[in-house]
Design a protein around this nucleic acid. Sequence first.
DNA 1: AAGATGGACAACCGCAGATTG
DNA 2: ACAATCTGCGGTTGTCCATCT
Length: 438
Amino acid sequence: MTVVKVEEVAKVDENPALVGENPGLDDEAEAGYVSPDDEDGDDEDDETDSDEDYEIPSGHGVPELRKGPWTPDEDKRLKSYVEAHGEGNWNKVQRNAGLNRCGKSCRLRWANHLRPDLKKGPFDAEEVDNIIRFHIMWGNKWAKMASHLPGRTDNEIKNYWNTRLKRNQRHGLPIYPEYMLSQVTHPHQDMNCETPGESHGKKQLNEYAKEKVVDMHDLIDEVMTFQHLDYDKDPVVPTKPLKRYASTVSLQISDETEKTFCSTDLNYVLTKSQSVPLGSAIASGYPVELPSFQSSSFTLSNDWLLQCPSASMEQQIIQSPESISSQTTVFGNSEHEGCPITKIQASNLSSGSDAVFNLGQCYPVASFSDPGIPDTPLEASFYTTPEASFLSDTTPLETSFLNDNLKDQSHLYWQEPKLLTDGGQWFDPCHKLDFPGP
DNA sequence: AAGATGGACAACCGCAGATTG
DNA sequence: ACAATCTGCGGTTGTCCATCT
């Protein structure tokens, strides 16, 4: 298909109706239509903004794909189509929504501008802080960063970073603040030693990202690579660290109860071609840190169900019960997909004290939605034996359960699975999540 | 006042991996 | 098994506006 560049699309100068509708979006004004926010109040204008105003006839009878800025009418068509049919099948969108845009363009427009969960406006201090930390850890993994910054798009972050990089280079400022480099274990101790203003400063970082950063996929697939790393010199930074895979499954937990539980708690390692139970990865010798839960004011007075995803982990727990609680006892066992489920009583954790499950040792049977996914409600269910009966295979997990049971909490501290380097170095910061509240 | 420069932003391009037929 | 198609990602470019000289 041929593509025609439409330079004159929706010039505001030529379309005064588009000016002044969004006083809060001055940045976007006059540059051609870019704002999807003016849903109300300009409908009439939209109606008059027929595509014909911008269309360039192909002259060959084949519809040309439009390029350039999106018009209000196009936005409206795309938005209503996606709202009616859902995301995905972007080429169908192109064909069925009366849009003369390629599927990629539709997806981009939706993802970056029309999605309802987008957060507009400049990055706040915390977001900037996170972006810098993420870049220290992951390099130019914009999509990954975006998944950890709700409402932000990879494009937004990328633009911000590139601008920031240029500015710092121009002014001879370090790319990363020193205090952050000391806080976040990073792959290159001399990362800031290179004068950023020098022409090859950026290149070195990029090269580093390519050559030194060890992709978790590589760790899964290339054991030798993993084993040959010198952790003292080359700490591992997972550019694609372990991801959790949340699924709804039925679990037969312990021989004491015949209940079938719904859980979204199975944690998997995602490899290139499959998802592997976290325990299998651990059992295979990958030093994977299990998820943990930490609370500042959570009452743990009941039995907890701890899933021990591998025999070796179970042994760890049995051998080091003090790492969980001084009064931890272990009993019960069952199998699910080859992963022993161990029920552990952690009765010594009282209200007001921090309930910290030692990382790498165990974790409560709790389900989290991936907090990195924007606008996904935080879902965490903590299954205790007394309340277990409320769960059945017909009872879906509900966020309200979390809200009801953890309503005194203000925050959840979320620790993602991460890689262990030699000498107890960990790479992932503890993500603080605002608790949604009751 | 006019041109130069920088910042912010949107959108496109090419590539690679995943999926589908 | 293979090719075609779809999807997502990162890099890059182009445009406009604000500020500087």
